[in-house]
Design a protein around this nucleic acid. Sequence first.
DNA 1: CGATAACCTGAGTCGCTAGTCCGATTCTAG
DNA 2: CTAGAATCGGACTAGCGACTCAGGTTATCG
Lengths: 190, 190
Amino acid sequence: MNGAQGRPLRADAARNRARLLDVATEVFTTRGVGVPTEEIARAAGVGVGTLFRHFPTKEALLEAVMVGRLESIAARTARLAAEAGPAEAFFGCFRLVIDQSAGKNEFARALAAAGVDAHAALQESSQVIQAQLAELLTGAQQAGAVRPELGLPELIALLVGTSTAMEHLGSDPAARERIFEVVFDGLRPR
Amino acid sequence: MNGAQGRPLRADAARNRARLLDVATEVFTTRGVGVPTEEIARAAGVGVGTLFRHFPTKEALLEAVMVGRLESIAARTARLAAEAGPAEAFFGCFRLVIDQSAGKNEFARALAAAGVDAHAALQESSQVIQAQLAELLTGAQQAGAVRPELGLPELIALLVGTSTAMEHLGSDPAARERIFEVVFDGLRPR
DNA sequence: CGATAACCTGAGTCGCTAGTCCGATTCTAG
DNA sequence: CTAGAATCGGACTAGCGACTCAGGTTATCG
């Protein structure tokens, strides 16, 4: 994550940075991006100054959190894609992305709203995932498991949409499953 | 909307109120709820004082905008439901709600975030629509056009999700149509 | 065990925005 | 046309939250 630029962080600094990221991920995900920075600093047991030393901007903190989540998703997706046939891999990854994306939509909005559409680091991880998704999609399409007329933009829109639908459903597992059935059946060829 | 309480508004006051609502609807929908109140007042050609005279709170303004949109949707839904068979009515209203809901999701969030979940006026219009949707749903299910295991919560989640998916697609009509096909096919019985 | 550079702290600054207040400005009844 | 009540305008206040800085603290190296 921290590309090991220049010199290594001092031990306590590295600890604080990691703690900050953990807490921020937790807080932003469960309570939204509107939570004040000071509260995150307190929850991590450091002063605001420390937070801003590591992440010069609230936006930078959001971005770091986002990159972490994206990288985690990319890793799991890669593993899953290697272990299953085209159809299972595709639908399995669809589920995975949805399950891992609680609150992620709000992040993306906040970042998009705050100036540049997406910074370099973000765009990179994002493109890794998009490439994976594209490959899964064409694989599943060639296997006859997904409608051939769909492209990557539609897939992404459906992922975001399904994620939002799940957020509005609370955590009733049966209802979630019904949503998955609707979407998956709709994705299959006529 | 303004339930004709007490005395009628003075002519200029009524004009200003309507203008304010129009502008707010436009601005909030296209640029999000973060736009400062003062900007809305200026765009409507009045001072902030006037805005706050008519809507004592920014939240109240949001709510008024929301109620207006909900009422408009409810009216169109009712018309459409009366003029078509169960299946056409159901799918037609689904489209209608999606088309009319640009930016509405953000409203709902903002309101939910700002204190009480939904105020009286909002809840009323919202329940009108929910009742309509419930009726359309069971009608379509009895006609065998929609999977019988789906309930109103799932339908609403799908509406919100589809709306979000559309937002992420820009305005490419062909792609929008493909999303509709996926969702509609998924809604039909196995 | 110092010496020193890196790091931490948190009160304070700055900018932004929701909401107030009252003199100035219409509208409308008669 | 005129009184006067309703309405308007927009400078002003209050409060919040992102970000800074002048010390005090601590890891690390020789």
